[in-house]
Amino acid sequence: MTNVYRRNWVLVIFVGLGILASGRQVNATLIAWSTTTSTKLTAGLYASEDLARDWQRVLQLASSQDTFLVSYATGVSHYYPAIKSTDSWIVLPGVLNPKERDQILQSIAAAEIVIEENGDLPADVREALGRMCLTETLVKFKIWQKPNQMGACRST
C-alpha cells in the first residue's frame, strides 16, 4: 500500500512540475508577443525594439560595404541579399565542423564589416574578429571593421 501512495505522490509532483512549466511557457510567450512588433525593417518578422533599431544600423552598413553576419540567422541573406551569413545553424565552440569553420573564417577575412550577434563563439572565430577593429557595440550586435592597409582602425 505504501508503494501505491509513493507512486501517487511522485505522479502528483511530476504533474505539478508540468503545469508550472507550461504556465511559464505561456507567460514567456505572452511577454514575447507584447514586446515585439512586425515591421518592414525586419522583413515582417517579429522583433524587439532594440533588435529593430540595431538591425537598421546593420542594414545601413550593408548598403555600402561588404558585410558578413556571424549569427544563427542563416536565412538572412534571403531577406537581405546584401548581407552574407554563415551556412551553419549553430555557431558555438565545439559544434562547428571543419568545413563550416573554414567558411566562417574565410568570410570574415573577405568582409569589410562583420556583424557579430552577441554570444559565445569558437576561439578561432573570436581570434579572427580580434584582428579586426571593434567599431560599435549595439544592444544585440557588435560591429567589426577590417583595418586599413596600414593596419589602423578607421571609423565607420
Rank of each mutant, 00 (worst) to 15 (best):
D102H: 09
L61A: 00
A52D: 06
G151W: 02
G16N: 10
S38C: 02
I31C: 04
A28R: 13
R57A: 05
A43G: 08
A62L: 02
E100L: 01
V139I: 14
R24L: 15
G130R: 03
P81K: 08
K84C: 03
L129G: 01
V114A: 00
L61M: 01
I83W: 06
V76C: 05
V15L: 15
S48N: 10
R6P: 07
W33V: 07
S34E: 12
F141Y: 15
T2L: 11
L61C: 02
D87H: 09
L41T: 12
D87W: 01
T156W: 01
T67Y: 08
Q106V: 02
Y72T: 13
V10K: 14
K99A: 13
L134V: 05
R126N: 06
W9I: 15
Q149H: 06
S88W: 03
T137D: 11
Q149T: 09
Y5R: 13
L30P: 02
Q106L: 03
F14Q: 06
P81V: 06
K99N: 07
T2N: 12
D124K: 08
R126V: 06
L134W: 08
M150F: 03
V114Q: 03
R126G: 04
F68E: 04
V76L: 13
G119Q: 01
A21R: 05
Q149C: 10
L20H: 05
N118G: 12
I143Q: 00
A43S: 15
P122C: 04
T37M: 10
S77D: 12
L59R: 10
N148A: 06
W9R: 15
T86Q: 02
I113Y: 04
C153H: 09
A128N: 06
G23W: 00
I113F: 06
L69E: 07
W9V: 14
D120M: 13
M132E: 02
A82F: 10
D50S: 15
Q149I: 10
E127N: 04
I115H: 05
L121I: 07
G23I: 02
N148D: 15
R7G: 14
A52Q: 12
I104A: 07
R154L: 11
D120V: 13
L51Q: 08
P122K: 02
Q106D: 10
Q56T: 04
A152H: 12
I108E: 00
A152L: 11
T135W: 08
N8C: 09
I13M: 04
R7F: 13
F141C: 09
I13C: 05
A110P: 05
R7P: 04
W33C: 01
D120I: 14
W89R: 09
T35P: 07
L59K: 14
E117R: 14
S88C: 04
A52R: 12
A128W: 01
V91F: 07
A43E: 08
Y72C: 02
A47K: 12
K146L: 11
A110K: 11
A123L: 03
I143S: 02
N8S: 12
N148P: 02
E117F: 05
L105R: 00
K99C: 00
R53K: 15
K140P: 01
G75A: 14
T86N: 01
V91M: 05
